Amino acid sequence: MNFENIETAYNLILENCQRLEIQLQTTNLYEALIEQNVCFINSEDITDKKIKENNEKLRYLNLSEEEWRRSFQFIFIKAMKDQFLQANHQFTPDSIAFILLYLLEELTHSPQLDILEIGSGTGNLAETLVINSQKTLDYMGIEVDDLLIDLAASIADVIGTDISFVQEDAIRPQILKESDVIISDLPIGYYPNDNIAKRYQVASLSEHTYAHHLLMEQSLKYLKKDGIALFLAPNNLLTSPQSDLLKKWLKDYANLIAVITLPENLFENKAYAKTIFILKKHIDNIPETFVYPLSDLQAHENITAFMESFKKWKLDNSI
């Protein structure tokens, strides 16, 4: 991986986005990035000579898929620093994405997997997994936000990754094939439509239901019998005011096989800190739940200790 090329690409993309923000009369960097991606793909239609020139320089760099992804990620970081982004518009950082990739590789046996991501957001998690997995991933992301779906799809077009993105409210009934893996950096908040929510076992009768509870229940409907669900969910998932409803549903429909807490300093606001929860549909031989506090994702020895502990748990429980 050429980090100098990544930096050059980032600066070229950013300069084009800044020009496009003025032309589009927007202060939203995501909107400008979508337009930049369209300009890059359809270069013959571009009248702005500087944008066209920068995109030719981008082409000349001949970036790898991972170099493209890193360049776009720097744009996401720029957006987080310079603009107010709602929590659900922020991307899943690499430090967490690569832990999820490790878990996906360790907990699945087939060389080819069907993956369904609920709330695919900017698409950064999808790109990280598809580009870096040792397996062949048939990946579909579902996202309700039209800005994010356009952003993720445009980035996939530029990088050339084979990822499908569908704009749908994942809490509403969908016709989808069952997947080997369900993955989600769950959006946090209340779901406003009580008529839809009341169809679910986790539905609250006294207030709006947590959207992340509804998405967890919905996700299991699309999971193969021997599949796994990897969720990034609030630290207080099992202790929050509506947690009894979730735990009752879990008791009947799924096994919680792993809980991996993450360092709070990964999250801009500690109130939005998350933990990795891994579920399987009910299985005959229920393993002892793997519980591990990951205190530092930058220290190599901490990651090594985590991996060794996880592999020992797998061996002890015949996973």
Rank of each mutant, 00 (worst) to 15 (best):
I159S: 04
L220R: 03
L137K: 00
C39H: 15
D194S: 15
A87P: 13
I183W: 11
A258V: 05
G141P: 04
K251Y: 10
I286T: 15
Y222A: 03
N11C: 12
D185R: 05
N37L: 03
F267W: 04
T261E: 13
K247F: 01
T26S: 12
E7G: 04
D180H: 10
I260C: 05
S64V: 11
K247S: 09
A211M: 14
V166R: 15
D169A: 12
N5G: 06
V181A: 06
I159E: 03
S154F: 07
P241F: 14
Y272G: 03
Q23V: 04
L176F: 13
L100G: 01
F84A: 08
F310M: 07
K221P: 00
L148H: 04
V144E: 13
K251Q: 12
I51W: 10
N11T: 10
Y210W: 07
Y253I: 00
N42E: 11
I159C: 06
K281R: 14
S318T: 07
N55W: 07
H208C: 11
E117I: 02
I13M: 02
L237Q: 00
V158E: 02
E264C: 01
S64Q: 12
Q201F: 11
L279S: 03
A152I: 07
K57C: 04
D94E: 15
I131N: 01
S206R: 14
T275A: 06
Y191S: 03
Q218T: 10
A203R: 13
F74S: 12
Y190F: 15
F72S: 02
E35N: 12
R19E: 04
I149A: 07
I260D: 05
T128P: 00
D45N: 11
F72M: 07
L104T: 03
N62P: 02
A197E: 01
I77G: 02
S120T: 05
L294H: 04
C17K: 03
S133C: 09
E7C: 06
K248C: 00
S133F: 06
D150S: 15
G141L: 10
K311W: 10
T136R: 03
H212P: 08
Q167N: 14
P293R: 09
I188G: 07
T261M: 05
V130H: 05
L262M: 08
L297H: 01
L315S: 11
E65F: 13
S309C: 08
T261L: 05
L58F: 10
F267S: 00
T26V: 01
I278C: 01
L104R: 02
F91V: 04
N193E: 14
Y253K: 13
T161C: 13
Q112L: 08
F74M: 12
L129W: 11
H282M: 09
L14Q: 10
L58D: 08
Y30R: 05
K50D: 12
R19N: 14
E178F: 08
A305S: 14
E21V: 00
E264W: 00
L148G: 03
I171W: 11
I118Q: 09
L232H: 08
L294F: 07
L101W: 07
A229K: 06
E217C: 09
E127D: 12
Y222V: 00
C39Q: 12
N317K: 02
V259W: 05
P241I: 06
Q134R: 09
Y210E: 13
Q23A: 14
E168K: 14
I6G: 08
N37S: 13
K251S: 09
L250H: 02
L129V: 05
P187W: 10
I118A: 08
L104Y: 08
T161P: 01
A299G: 00
